[in-house]
Amino acid sequence: MSVVALSRTVEPLLSVQHLTIGIPSSGGGHATLVRDVSFEVGPGVRYGLVGESGSGKSMTLKAIAGLLPRGVEVLEGEIHFDGDDVLTMSPHERRRIMGPRMAMIFQEPMTALNPTTRVGKQIAEGPRRHLGLSKADAQELAVDMIRRTGIPDPARRARAYPHELSGGLRQRIMIAMALSCKPALVLCDEPTTALDVTVQDQVLRLLAQLCDDMGSALTFVTHDLAVVSQTCSRLSVMYAGRIMEEGNVREVYEAPQHPYTEALFQSAPDFDDPGRRLAPIPGLPPSLTDPPPGCPFAPRCQYAIESCSTGSKPLVEVRHRHLSACDLADQIFGGTR
């Protein structure tokens, strides 16, 4: 497929190929949550997966982290991380990479942190186990990590329990924990959705800066176009379990190559363009158990023609390193440049 044929200068750190995730059911009619998703994340790259609820963005991330909920399975495809096949790994092998090489930051830090353990100790657990540090050295590293997340008085904060901290501080602790072993890849699932705007702003900057300092790549799942355009350099837009468009953030923002991306931008309030009228997308996303043939966005698309509802719609390169799953991308968006 064209995705694989793309010229690349560096080996990807994370490679997801033809990933299909679903809920198998014995009676047939199983739901497919993610369908034939392929993308690659290079070392140090900040990559965003954007989509609305039900688009499959979180499931894709969970499959990479090996955290798919019970009953949800990878039906097809491969996920390679640093050359290793993540899906065929034994639980033991997976534990060896989760933490030191791949780390995850969740949306709600209160449920991800252990409420009965001081945060410093929780941060130190990873370095002790994976880097072989002594208790004292790991504790020192934990305090240093807390300092690097910009929390004042880190030594005192290290002795706090999660409930003693505010939402913003807790999320900083999660970031400190995720980055404590200098992982090559950090996975984030809506890490700032639960935070206030002024705190979200602080946390996004911190996350980007720390990942750069540590040379970590980031895979960032969010529903917020503005958040992804501030944090990531490259993104995929997902809809109904598929990638509709992939490209560099700046190019996708300036010249989207898929009608869904365009519609999503037009429906979202843009702070820099307050005069623009918000245009909602009519209709509803398709059913996951019985998706329509052809392009899943066709029933809601203002440009749709008859051929949109038939055949498969692969992601093809329409411009340099800019891919679209729309057959008509050239006709619709070709003249915009």
């Binding site: 002024t198 702003d201 602080q202 503005a226 501030q230 953030v249 923002y253 702070f271 820099d272």
Partner: peptide, 17 residues
């Protein structure tokens, strides 16, 4: 100043608050 913007911008600068 804290509202996330669509237009990609520099994350190097300090947060507004």
């Amino acid at each position: 100043a804290s509202v996330p913007r669509m237009r990609p911008r520099d994350l190097e600068q300090p947060p507004a608050l």
